[in-house]
Amino acid sequence: MRALISTFASIAALVLAPVLAAAPAQAQDRYETEASHAVIMDYDTGQVLFAKDAETPMAPSSMSKMMTVLMVLEAIEAGTLSMDDELPVSEYAWRTGGAASGSSTMFLELGSRASVEDLLRGVIIQSGGDACIVLAEALSGSEAAFADAMTARAHELGLTSANFANATGWPDPDHYISALDLARLARILIRDHPQYYGMWAEREFTYNGIRQYNRNPLLGNFAGADGLKTGHTEAAGYGLVGTAERNGERRIIVFNGMTSNRDRTAEAERMMRAAMSDFAVYDLFAADTVLDPRAAVFMGDADTVGLQVGEDIQVALHRRARRNMTVSVVYEGPLMAPIEAGQEIGRLVVEAPGYEAEDYPLYASENVGRKGMMGRIGAALAHMIRGGS
């Protein structure tokens, strides 16, 4: 049996009705992007507002340096490293990530020492590969060992698509992570390390007499933008993990595969505008809500049982898709007594044009006992008289 709850702006009492045919998806109800991989996430709930090939592992280039930073911040909070520690610049770090490498660098000098605080800014603002390697060697002894530790920690955090071969994002067939897991990583950095988060919004950093600028195109160009990380390699194209907060709402965007820096800049602003303006997270039901009407029960000491929501239910949608959203209850009815409170007896199904249907379990809100012998006989006779319907 299926019952329709609502098709428009408010969730009203459950009304028994045939399921309406879903309206065809409208082009304006969906965001489109030329990026090869993309995701828009609501920060507060972690709900995905938009996704394009978001779960496929990809080459993240320097965007994977967010994981390097996370490892360092966790070491600082664990007391194994401090912001004031001075770390040595090895020849390997200098050659592999320094000026001679041809990649983004902090311009650390061979044999010099740099503070952890400066190295973090070198990673976050300048995307310095040399700074990444110095930190990796300090924490794990070698970049390879650090990459293994990055992968293990990522998996512990639920970022199961991740596999890291280095600390810098240098191209390697064994170095990859999905856009969705990059968004989750960004959420972890913002949520769990607020005391250091301000570094991501810093526009420039001068080290060794060399002034360098943050490449994040959102900073200074999109009100409320305060992070996070760009990335670029020939193989992966141009990518960005960006975030902004407006009116108490924060969004995270991730995309990769743009063909030029100019295209990345344009797509960053366009995607963040859409993230803030075109999408919303709708609160449908609070946990323990009992829906109305109740489910029919056969052979019970009560004729109906309440259908109870087991969790807060929130749905992330394009605002224009919301008008054609349907919320319905599905259960095999009438339900056969006895029924125990907390027993799963149905599903709540949320559908909208252009989106995959989402469903949630519904539970019995109370016990329903079985009728006595005479009651069961009477119910069976009534069922026969009605023709078994």
Rank of each mutant, 00 (worst) to 15 (best):
G198A: 15
L228S: 04
V116F: 03
M58Y: 08
I125H: 05
I377D: 08
R386G: 02
R294D: 07
V350G: 01
A316S: 10
L157I: 08
E74Q: 10
M336D: 11
S104K: 01
A12T: 15
G46W: 12
A99H: 12
A13W: 13
Q126M: 12
W94M: 01
V315M: 09
D192M: 12
I5Q: 09
E143I: 14
N214E: 03
L20T: 07
L110Q: 15
W94P: 15
S104Q: 06
D312E: 01
A114M: 02
S389T: 14
S90P: 14
M299W: 04
Y92E: 06
A380R: 13
S260A: 02
M336F: 11
Q28C: 10
Y176M: 04
V241R: 10
G242F: 01
G257I: 02
H155C: 14
A275C: 06
G378Y: 09
R319L: 10
N214V: 02
I5S: 06
M384C: 13
I124R: 01
A364T: 03
G46E: 07
I252K: 02
A154T: 05
A244H: 08
T230P: 05
L284W: 06
A25T: 13
A13Y: 12
R250W: 03
P24V: 07
L159K: 05
L240E: 05
E204L: 10
L185H: 06
I252C: 08
A235K: 08
Y92I: 03
M41R: 07
L362D: 03
P60L: 03
G209S: 06
Q47S: 11
R262H: 11
M299Q: 15
P88H: 01
A144R: 15
M199A: 04
A13T: 11
L218I: 05
T151N: 10
H232Y: 06
P60H: 12
F205S: 13
V297A: 01
A23W: 13
L240H: 07
V350C: 01
M1D: 12
E55N: 14
V69I: 09
W170R: 09
C132A: 04
E137N: 09
E344Q: 03
F205C: 11
A165W: 06
A59C: 12
A154H: 02
A162E: 00
T7G: 12
M150G: 00
R262W: 11
L189I: 06
G97I: 01
I190C: 08
I190E: 10
E351L: 12
E267N: 11
R153L: 07
D192E: 13
M374W: 13
P361C: 02
R153M: 07
S6K: 12
A302V: 11
R95S: 00
A296Y: 05
A352W: 13
A179L: 06
G306Y: 04
A59H: 14
H232F: 06
I188M: 08
I76E: 03
M67G: 01
N166D: 02
Q314P: 09
M299H: 13
I5R: 09
R113H: 15
H383S: 10
H232L: 07
S62Q: 08
E332G: 04
D42K: 10
M373L: 15
Y213N: 12
P60E: 00
Q314M: 11
